[in-house]
Design a protein around this nucleic acid. Structure first.
Length: 598
RNA sequence: GGGCGCGUAGCCUAGCCUGGAUAGGGCACCGGGUUCCUAACCCGGGGGUCGAGGGUUCGAAUCCCUCCGCGCCCGCCA
């Protein structure tokens, strides 16, 4: 039996009380069977997804020393001795398992009460202590996003949404690397009048400029050609090196920041189409200007493991850290006294830890070693905290190669979105000739961007992805539009049922069809799924859940009439409302527009 | 050479953290479904040595070891 104490935790997961009562019941039943079960041990093996036979399953093997007859006997005795528990049907032993089912009416009531009662907060957890800064994207401001880089943004933005839902206040940050050779290169070329550009660079740009270019495209256009040119021309490379030195000395060319801001503005406009934005922007050069880098460097020099090299450079003796054998020393200050990327990153992370209790960095796999180097330097100065890294693998181009701006093999985000919008526009025109042009455009846009976001987030970050147009542009099956479609259907039913707003009275007795119960079960899984995604950072689990929910809603929709269902109509409308709410909340976590119609 | 990650049907993928009952989905393919709440949908079907081998265990896709294949990284670059 579950009692609610004053000040007890708010129930956010409909399963929590049953997990409590089944665990407690098993402990009592075990005592009767002369088997000592401890509640934490029971909880550890209790399978909440239930397996094939029920809602909760308890495998007894480890308590019966194996899977022989003894296990079956124990399962039977545990089932027989299980105390009568409100809302839980008497358990059934099957082989070495004790299977529990929750009373369907109780499940329906608890789930719909929670989903409808909490509304937009269904699936969200209680406020937690602490705060988190999620750094993601952080692409150099040198030109448009390609699809590979967008994986970072989609994972990071979704993660921020999921962590917030789970109860942790989150601040998102975009770290702008304006101190590297790459951004210096952009300033170098645009610092020259056009007729002073080296011929190959001018030729590469000529004819490609369009009057309506976004800033990132316009200012980034010469970048690949400039990059190639500099490899062959040491004199020009020396000019870029001069710009780098100016930046590092704290006196960049006057137009440096302005160019960076222009390009970044264009890049951010692309992300905004996918509902990706940032709370804060941190310019690397500001860390130099405000003394943060000097302070970090000073701390590193005082570290016990700090060593001075012959030419005056400073390094940390890193033999004790788990870095590659060659990296016995990590240099953090050059012989000329200037700082390095990793040093500035130390300064940045000290700033993060000064304001937030934890930090998450979303990084491409090519930054894996950098992450460990950063950890080593933080350890060297006695900082106990570390960022948590979410590492994702590359998105490669159709022929398998790496997506590269400079190599010209990139698939641009803007092109992908544009293509998706065109395709969605055709679909909408074919399916919904009744919509106004404005409405059709809104739907097409939401479908297109939903497809793009879902396509990227649905895959575990660990998996390398080979980009294929036909996959990215799919609106069917495991896709964003599939989920959006279920939401639109549910919305349509509620609209026609004149049930677009609460209250939603229902009678659990009337929701007894197998497809109705199955739908309730999937709805009830949502809070657990969000908590799991937040704990493990597996944001793709939310995408998988959204598909499962939409899938089951569609099955229900086909099997059970709602509007013409007589006495059960009101209860079914409540179920549809709960499903829609959950679909909506899941879509919001994924940054996908929950369309009312499509 | 070393480090990290990945390998699940023709293709894509979930499950791996925390071992548990016939390995879930999607695409494609085959066969059905719309006078009825949106067919971007639903129902049915075929298709699997979970890269290979060994180990641990009552039990391994899951944990450990070896090997193979693929990607990335191994700068006083960022």
């Amino acid at each position: 039996m579950t009692t609610t104490r004053p000040g007890a935790a708010e129930v956010t997961d409909p399963w929590a009380p049953w997990i409590d009562s089944v665990s407690a019941g098993l402990v009592r039943s075990g005592a009767g069977a002369a088997v000592e079960l401890r509640e934490d041990g029971v909880r550890a093996v209790l399978d909440v997804d239930g397996g094939p036979e029920g809602d909760l399953a308890f495998p007894v093997h480890r308590f019966a020393a194996g899977s022989g007859p003894a296990a079956e006997v124990l399962a039977r005795r545990l089932a027989e001795g299980f105390p009568s528990t409100p809302g839980v049907n008497p358990p059934v032993a099957r082989g070495a398992y004790v299977n529990f089912t929750v009373d369907a009416r109780v499940l329906v009531k608890a789930t719909l009460d929670l989903a409808l009662g909490r509304g937009v907060r269904y699936g969200h957890g209680e406020r937690r202590e602490g705060s988190t800064v999620v750094e993601h994207t952080s692409a150099n401001p040198t030109g448009p996003f390609h699809v590979g880089r967008v994986r970072n943004a989609v994972i990071g933005d979704t993660l921020a949404r999921v962590l917030r839902a789970a109860g942790t206040p989150v601040t998102t940050q975009y770290y702008i690397d304006d101190m590297g050779r790459q951004s210096a290169m952009v300033t170098w070329i645009w610092g020259k009048p056009r007729d002073a550009w080296p011929e190959p660079i001018r030729a590469a740009v000529e004819g490609k400029e369009r009057p309506d270019d976004k800033a990132d495209r316009r200012w980034g256009l010469p970048y690949p050609a400039a990059s190639a040119y500099l490899k062959e021309h040491p004199d020009a490379a020396a000019e870029v090196a001069t710009v780098v030195r100016q930046i590092e000395s704290g006196a960049p060319p006057a137009e440096h920041r302005r160019i960076g801001e222009q390009i970044l503005g264009g890049m951010l406009a692309s992300l905004a189409r996918l509902a990706i934005g940032f709370d804060e922007f941190v310019w690397e050069s500001d860390l130099l200007a405000d003394g943060s880098v000097a302070k970090a460097t000073e701390a590193l020099r005082r570290a016990p493991l700090a060593v001075r090299e012959e030419n005056g450079a400073w390094a940390i003796d890193a033999r004790g850290f788990a870095l590659p054998k060659e990296s016995t020393r990590v240099v953090f200050q050059r012989g000329d006294g200037t700082s390095l990327y990793v040093t500035r990153d130390v300064a940045y992370h000290l700033a993060k830890f000064g304001r937030f209790s934890s930090a998450v960095d979303v990084l491409g796999q090519d930054h894996q070693l950098h992450a460990r180097t950063l950890d080593a330097l933080l350890a060297a100065i006695g900082e106990k905290r570390r960022p948590t890294y979410v590492i994702y693998q590359d998105i490669t181009v159709p022929d398998g190669g790496r997506m590269s701006t400079r190599g010209g093999s990139a698939v641009w985000l803007d092109d992908l979105v544009e293509e998706a919008v065109e395709r969605a526009t055709r679909e909408v025109a074919a399916r919904r000739p009744d919509l106004s042009a404005a409405e059709a455009g809104r739907v097409a846009d939401a479908v297109a961007t939903g497809a793009v976001r879902y396509h990227i987030v649905r895959i575990a970050p660990d998996k390398p992805v080979r980009f294929r147009w036909e996959d990215a542009l799919s609106f069917e099956g495991r896709s964003g539009p599939f989920v959006q479609y279920s939401h639109a259907r549910a919305s349509s039913v509620l609209r026609k049922g004149d049930a677009d707003a609460p209250p939603y009275p229902f009678d659990p007795e009337r929701l007894a069809d197998p497809e109705e119960i199955a739908l309730v079960r999937v709805i009830s899984r949502f809070p657990r799924t969000v908590a799991y995604a937040a704990r493990t950072f597996h944001v793709h689990a939310v995408a998988g859940y959204a598909h499962d929910l939409a899938d089951q809603f569609n099955r229900f929709y086909h099997a059970v009439p709602v509007l013409r269902s007589g006495a059960g109509r009101e209860s079914r409308l409540a179920l549809v409302a709960a499903a829609r709410q959950t679909l909506r909340n899941a879509l919001e976590l994924l940054g996908i527009v929950p369309l009312e119609t499509m």
